[in-house]
Write a protein that binds this DNA or RNA. Sequence first.
RNA 1: GCCACCGUAGCUCAGUGGUAGAGCACACCCUUGGUAAGGGUGAGGUCAUGGGUUCAAGUCCCAUCGGUGGCUCCA
Length: 612
Amino acid sequence: MPVIEKHKVDKQSDLYKMRHSLAHVMAQAVQRLFPGVKLGFGPPIDDGFYYDFLFPAGTVLTDADLATIQKEMQKIVKEDQPFQQEELSFADAIARLTQMGEPHKVEYCKELHDKKGFDTIGFYTNGPFVDMCEGPHVENVRQLKPDQFKLHALAGAYWRGDERNVQLTRIYAYAFPSKPELKEHIQNVEQAKKNDHRILGQKLSIYSIAEEVGKGLPLWLPNGAAIRHELEKLAYEMEFAAGYVKVATPIITREGLYHTSGHLPLYAKGMYPPMEIHEEAEGDEQAKIERYYIKPMNCPHHHMVFKAEKRSYRDLPLRLCEYGYNHRFERAGTLQGLTRVRGFCMNDAHIYVTPEQLKDEFKAVLELHRKYYALFEFNDYYLRLSKWDPDDPKKGDKYVDDPAGWAFSERIVQEALEEMNLEYTIEPGEAAFYGPKVDYEFRTVTGREFTATTNQLDFCVPARFELEYTDKDGEQKTPYCIHRAPLGTHERFIAILIEHYGGAFPTWLAPIQVCIVPVSEKHLDYAKKVESLLRSDLVRTELDDSNNTMGKKIRTNTTRKIPILLILGDQEEADATVTIRRYGIEQQDTMPLDTFHTLVREEIRARKHVKG
RNA sequence: GCCACCGUAGCUCAGUGGUAGAGCACACCCUUGGUAAGGGUGAGGUCAUGGGUUCAAGUCCCAUCGGUGGCUCCA
């Protein structure tokens, strides 16, 4: 099955031409307002376009300048500027770009010629503006509308995305065929912000990040901890059924282990610096220093668990699982809510297998994903198969040098995907150091894409740890290892869940599952009876005994998105019934307390999602 | 880390150099209510932190800390 193409762009579409042309108009406007500015790239993107500029030294662009540039653009599109295309020989192109004083364009032009084999280079001219460009464009800037675009963001962007290069100033703009479509997009962006896990996470008291604790180190409030508990329970049940065994390993560890694993020194910058323990050795002036690191991953520890006992082929597959707490020193600027943090808890497992078991076991992992994702009703994600890049000149630093191992591993993983009938993209050069991987990619409501879970085939590290099992023939052999984390980390996964459900969780996952609303204080005794009945059955129940009117209590607990409200008044108390009001469902229902008790228990057990 | 913006009560925010404000939330009182906001009273702030300019700084300047968006969707 199908290897799918991501980001397929129709360059001949009117939308593409329009956005691309507007990018040129923006560059022209910027040149008018800031003489001496140098150009970077300026492509159309999903919701508009951007252009990168290098401003003359001392010029700092601020948000206020965006409005000015926008106005200048609106003037330009009213002028009569036809787009004219021409093809220049490579030598002429270089001469022209040099004369224009565009160093970045010269660099890219050379690359097009030297590496991509272009003989001629395209240029587009509209009015006084000339750009090296493959097009296509609209015929005349008059076809562009002054109200179809909006400059909205200013950002630093390194030339070619490499921080060793000069930093350019990027201006982002939205652009759509018409003003109403632009307006709609802006409204959608606003709406999406309301489902942002950072907003809902605070509103629903799920997590908090305190400056005093540290950036990227979230505190889980009781509501968030309840969700974590449910995910761990789910994982335990699924993994237990699939033959996994749970292990537990420490958070700090002596440095030697990370030399064995290869994390040191290669991955050191991604780890918190070591703790040093100074020990006076007896009769020795020299103090010994022992270094401990906080673990960034669980694999070395699981390998040590494997090694703790003599293993036989009869023990395999050995599936060691742990919700392990890891810390990584992520760059400050990349941290974001729960999706990018420095401390996280991973739904990790390492599966040790013989070569014969490898494919089936990898398929079983993919099957586990399928079950989880069906339960959560996820549909907005895609799979990515990451391979090594044998043509990469720096492959020696990036990948273990074992072409046969790569060929075998990649074949196994790809066959597993095919046999599971899954769609995926292929990303050459994105593999892990020790093997190919299959990642599940999600998008946040704010449009940022990230890896939710990763599954890797490791044909290398077990040997570094000298992991062995005794095979049927009595020989000592090294197992393959599958690293997998279908539920990712609590942090990212709960961020996904918050946005996926818009904070309105299914009952089993909801931090508060049932909230009891007594009609008046007279009904508190009955309400307490119902509360303790449900709580004794582990239903997360809360009683709203506040001195508020009923309407207010319903409003308050509805805005908390609690899945089930129980209304208890004279009627219910007299008949030993409850009146159920579900989140997002108009229709109310009154039923005997016993019936409700059974119903809610079953709904939670079966992890049903009752929707309106 | 780098670029831009931001930081005022638990939360959302107003306050453009001259005595720190509102709504929600919270506490207490009245109200004892039948399906999305009953009424009253009160408490709560070294205006992120530190330094500077000024007769005077939440407001202007600098630094630090923290947050938000962005840092190859490539002519």
